[in-house]
Amino acid sequence: MIYSIVSFILGFTISFGRQISVFAKLDKGLWFFQNYEVKRIIFTSFSLIFAAIAIYQDTDNRLVFGLSVMTFVLLGFAFLFDMTYLFPEIDRVDKTLARCTTINETTRIIGLTIGQTAIAYPLDEVVIPRHIINDEIEHTAILISYCALCQSALAFKAEVGKQHLYFKVAGVWRRNMIMIDKHTQSLWQQATGECIYGTYKGTQLELLSGENTTWGVWRGKHPDSLFAEKCFESRHGILSRELMLKALNFVTPKVTMPGFADLSGLPQRETVFGISFNGVSKAYPLSELNTISQFTDNFNGKNVELVYDQKENCLAAKEKENNQTLIVEKHWWLGWKEFHPNTEIWRNN
């Protein structure tokens, strides 16, 4: 009997260790996310060995048989809900010049420029259903990331020193996706680009100005832009991109994961544009921007000019004195507030 109990405990632990850590908000539980595939194989192997010993010793014991069946179900669950197959990352991108594409101008994209190169990645068709694109632009490693739980599409320089990093989806932590780098198996928070567990803990990826807009607007600004026309997955996903997009659109508005921040101030799923500048974090709610197009705001004595394009649902910001373009992030309120607990909320008074 003892062997069947140990087998069940091992199966339950590897199947639900990550989920228990998330809902109980246990930092030490991040251990389960790191190199999960290897841990799953080890736990599964020992679980099956103990189950086999239990069945061999007590062939006619119904309780042993029942525990063994439940263990097999748990182990199957662990393999079925595998993030690497639910969200297979993009590992190769074929790019086409803007003038050579027939992409619909209303296609939503995240665009960025590196050096003299501008490139746009399609959101609905690729970024959202697969969550991660690993790319390289002008010898710079790039990470395009998306978190469905907080509706944030962000771009980072995927480098630490001279080390180029390759990312995969690891799971969820603090209402936000966490990613794992293939090189060190370190865990990274998508909302901040910070390494939260592993070799690079405390290291910050450089956030890039990924503009969430449409292909028509982006191409108008960057006529020589490239478009990520073909994106190739590292492995076959359990669901196609189209089915995954539908599933995410259905599920994510109904799910709120545990976090550490109080979400008062705005509705949890209010779309906000977030800016962190000169020691101040501010959220600009979409509901407050609908009646204004251009205005000035103050960040600890520095004036910032902001322009909101209602048609494209895009906010641009520049520091007035030096004409410095500021990075504007787009999130649901629950995602922005979780990592900017002291954020101010801009009101159109």
Rank of each mutant, 00 (worst) to 15 (best):
residue 71 T to E: 05
residue 111 G to K: 08
residue 80 L to C: 00
residue 101 T to K: 09
residue 285 P to L: 08
residue 86 L to T: 01
residue 276 S to L: 00
residue 345 I to G: 03
residue 99 R to E: 15
residue 316 A to Q: 08
residue 133 I to N: 01
residue 304 V to N: 06
residue 18 R to D: 05
residue 203 T to D: 04
residue 89 E to I: 00
residue 28 K to G: 07
residue 181 D to Q: 10
residue 209 S to K: 12
residue 206 E to Y: 03
residue 97 L to D: 14
residue 134 N to V: 01
residue 290 N to D: 09
residue 281 S to R: 08
residue 247 A to D: 00
residue 253 P to I: 12
residue 50 F to Q: 02
residue 274 G to Y: 05
residue 194 E to F: 06
residue 80 L to Y: 09
residue 187 L to F: 01
residue 71 T to W: 09
residue 105 E to P: 03
residue 233 E to T: 10
residue 80 L to I: 03
residue 25 K to D: 09
residue 72 F to P: 01
residue 303 N to F: 06
residue 164 H to P: 14
residue 124 D to L: 10
residue 154 L to K: 15
residue 134 N to H: 00
residue 180 I to G: 14
residue 5 I to M: 03
residue 265 G to T: 07
residue 62 R to Q: 10
residue 231 C to D: 04
residue 122 P to G: 11
residue 203 T to I: 12
residue 87 F to Q: 09
residue 248 L to M: 14
residue 300 N to F: 03
residue 347 R to L: 14
residue 339 F to T: 11
residue 84 T to R: 13
residue 46 F to H: 08
residue 281 S to W: 02
residue 118 A to Y: 06
residue 89 E to V: 13
residue 153 A to P: 06
residue 190 Q to E: 13
residue 316 A to E: 06
residue 215 W to A: 01
residue 133 I to S: 01
residue 259 G to Y: 09
residue 335 G to T: 12
residue 279 G to W: 15
residue 160 V to C: 04
residue 212 N to C: 12
residue 257 M to D: 06
residue 31 W to D: 10
residue 197 Y to D: 13
residue 10 L to G: 09
residue 138 E to C: 14
residue 327 I to N: 15
residue 114 I to P: 00
residue 171 G to K: 02
residue 221 K to Q: 12
residue 167 F to K: 05
residue 241 R to T: 12
residue 219 R to E: 10
residue 217 V to T: 07
residue 5 I to W: 08
residue 229 E to S: 15
residue 103 I to K: 09
residue 241 R to I: 02
residue 52 A to N: 08
residue 103 I to G: 07
residue 326 L to W: 11
residue 121 Y to V: 12
residue 260 F to A: 13
residue 348 N to K: 14
residue 226 L to S: 08
residue 161 G to R: 11
residue 58 D to M: 15
residue 31 W to K: 04
residue 256 T to G: 04
residue 295 F to T: 09
residue 16 F to S: 04
residue 68 S to V: 14
residue 173 W to A: 10
residue 242 E to H: 03
residue 152 S to P: 06
residue 82 D to C: 02
residue 285 P to H: 03
residue 301 G to L: 07
residue 321 E to G: 01
residue 98 A to K: 07
residue 176 N to Q: 12
residue 178 I to N: 11
residue 344 E to W: 02
residue 316 A to G: 00
residue 300 N to E: 09
residue 3 Y to D: 09
residue 101 T to R: 12
residue 165 L to K: 13
residue 202 G to P: 04
residue 26 L to T: 06
residue 72 F to K: 02
residue 199 T to F: 04
residue 344 E to H: 08
residue 118 A to N: 05
residue 52 A to R: 00
residue 318 K to Y: 15
residue 246 K to W: 07
residue 104 N to M: 04
residue 274 G to W: 03
residue 164 H to V: 10
residue 71 T to I: 08
residue 276 S to C: 03
residue 96 T to K: 14
residue 193 G to F: 08
residue 122 P to N: 14
residue 6 V to G: 00
residue 242 E to I: 10
residue 120 A to C: 06
residue 136 E to I: 15
residue 165 L to F: 15
residue 222 H to F: 13
residue 26 L to W: 11
residue 126 V to H: 06
residue 312 E to W: 06
residue 277 F to D: 01
residue 238 I to M: 14
residue 224 D to F: 04
residue 184 T to H: 13
residue 104 N to R: 11
residue 309 D to E: 10
residue 7 S to D: 03
residue 84 T to V: 00
residue 75 L to C: 05
residue 333 W to Q: 09
residue 77 F to N: 08
residue 17 G to N: 03
residue 149 L to S: 15
residue 303 N to I: 04
residue 58 D to Q: 13
residue 19 Q to K: 01
residue 237 G to C: 02
